[in-house]
Design a protein around this nucleic acid. Structure first.
Lengths: 341, 341
DNA sequence: CCAGAATTTGCACACGGTTGCAAGAGACTA
DNA sequence: TAGTCTCTTGCAACCGTGTGCAAATTCTGG
């Protein structure tokens, strides 16, 4: 071994051991730099012996890219968020970048802090999965040359790209699915979280119903998915005339709703009530639920984002990235169309 | 606004605008440095006008701490992992550090790469949640002064801290719980993933049974939790004499097992079969499952880890951090003791 | 108003890399 | 052998920040 006791080893040390200049070491580890095969070999051997690893922080100083991408997120244990985070870190690594996740509570101050962190670390870009960042702060990020990508934030600010899912169209489709299944008394279940996506789904469903002359109850029984869904069922079925068709703006809400409807009110799904969700989280496919829902094509979404991040060039885009279209997944929580039975 | 068009603004620029030296700017943003109130004010105003943010990469160069902590993980969408990741990022932020997550496939090469990344970014420490890192690579990390914390890796290497959960003791407790519930034909359900934790639980349960003169079937029907659990049930019940008491080394396995037992074989839980899990993921508490299980005290675990990371001083510890004790959570998937009924 | 103490400020170097530039080393041709 | 061309190599400047040291300024007390 060597005599070094603590701290990281630098290119200087490697250079001395290999008997070359510090530049030679640098070039050995820089793609496309000019080094002879002989010195490269000497350098690699010395580096290996000393356990040398290029300092990316220092590299990021002179180079303009840090290869760090900030991911601003909240409620990581939520299946949908976790899935997104998984795909995101994986694909970022595939293009040589690394994700720095910043866990927020979702409120403005917390998100502001998160954005500041990404600026402090000179991140190449920020992906905002949750929370509604202040417009001025986003402007600051963009002004500093940072790429900002918002997911499903409806704020129309110039500069950041906004990856949108077709919430409204899909909610309308959900409405017609339930109608065609023969449902008469519809209801919408949402949560008090009130993110732009959820509100968009809610409103589109209500609008479609209004076009048919119906006004529907909307229940928001709490902030978190499963519990709020269960509570919504309790409220809706505690008196007679409960719905026979329910659109839950989130799969988690749907699963909670289904469990409460079945166990607290002995309702059968879909015979007594048809339930339709949104997201297609893994649990929606479990045998106890077999939830009919709309899949968010996470892989495709992340792919679109990562491509934006990968390209070099201008750091602002027209914020109209083509919206992503969820895919209907038929399982067993919605009655088949009468004529199709 | 200002005339700067692209790129980040540096302390130099702020200094010029404020009419002070660059040192003054640096000191304004350094805790405990000596600056007069007047210049601090001038600097802060200029910084605000320009959108200046201290460059943590540069700061980490001279300073010994980067405030980055690597988190090596795989299968993020798994509820248990997601929960751990959530708590980890949250608590790291609370002590002023930031988590850089590296998503691995779990195999040796992938983990090796992950560790190299943390060295490249001069992370203050690495937390390895999954995968079995090569001993030599860990040694390299430790030699470079990086704190390494392994979670539930049984490898006894000098240097890294190893946070252990009492897998064996808890599995033994599970065995006695099932026996006291009156179960006669026991089985163990595990996965082909074969991580040290899972194997430890498996073996301890089998050993306890062997002490009673029993030999038990162990089914490993696949790598991923839910599907492997369901498949295990299919294998065990496809011929007569299936178990009336099952220990699933993971909650996900238990939920899959339960679903298949109920829906494919019309078995009642717990009347026909008692099922006990491990982890206490959120879904275990859902009404459809009401799984009796052992909770891993994630918050407490992460707290222990973060405390190790927070302290300054030597970068190696005696690897005997006091092991964490899971807490039994009684729900409805195990028969109550006969005499207690 | 002055000496001395206390505080603030700027200079210059360090941190660990990258890179333009010019000089050096071979290789090839005439 | 000289001349030209190509490939390597080292020097030195730079990226943006922290900080020891000495000079400059302000404050305090007489």
């Amino acid at each position: 071994m060597d005599t070094r006791e603590k701290g990281f080893v630098s290119a200087e040390t490697v250079a001395r051991l290999a008997g070359v200049s510090r530049s030679a070491v640098s070039r050995t580890f820089t793609d496309g730099a000019s080094v002879s095969e002989a010195t490269r070999k000497k350098v690699l051997e010395a580096a290996d012996a000393l356990g040398y690893h290029v300092n990316h922080l220092a590299r990021g100083l002179s180079h303009e890219r840090s290869n760090i991408v900030g991911i601003v997120v909240s409620e990581i244990p939520t299946p949908y968020q976790a899935r997104l985070l998984d795909e995101m870190t994986r694909q970022l690594q595939a293009i040589g970048k690394i994700g720095m996740v910043i866990n927020t509570t979702g409120d403005a101050a917390s998100v502001a802090n998160a954005l500041r962190q990404t600026l402090n670390f000179r991140a190449d870009g920020v992906i905002v999965l949750s929370g509604a960042p202040d417009a001025s702060l986003i402007a600051a990020s963009v002004a500093n040359g940072q790429r900002v990508i918002l997911i499903n934030r409806s704020d129309l600010i110039e500069g950041p790209a906004n990856l949108a899912v077709e919430n409204a169209e899909t909610a309308r489709e959900a409405y017609h699915l339930l109608r065609r299944a023969g449902c008469q008394r519809l209801a919408v279940v949402s949560s008090t979280a009130g993110t732009p996506s959820l509100t968009a789904r809610e409103n589109a469903f209500l609008d479609a119903a209004r076009a048919d002359g119906l006004t529907l109850p909307v229940i928001k029984a709490g902030p978190t998915g499963y519990a709020a869904g269960a509570e919504a069922a309790r409220q809706l079925y505690s008196r007679s005339g409960g719905p026979d068709g329910v659109f839950c703006v989130t799969d988690l809400l749907a699963l909670g709703f289904m469990d409460a409807a079945r166990h607290a009110f002995s309702l059968r799904v879909p015979q007594d009530v048809s339930i339709i969700g949104f997201d297609d989280i893994e649990q929606a496919g479990w045998e106890s639920y077999a939830l009919t829902t709309f899949r968010q094509p996470v892989e495709e979404m992340v792919d679109a984002i990562v491509q934006l991040l990968a390209q070099t060039g201008p750091t602002t885009w027209p914020h109209a990235v083509p919206p992503i279209k969820p895919i209907p997944i038929w399982r067993k929580s919605v009655l088949p169309r009468p004529e199709a039975g």
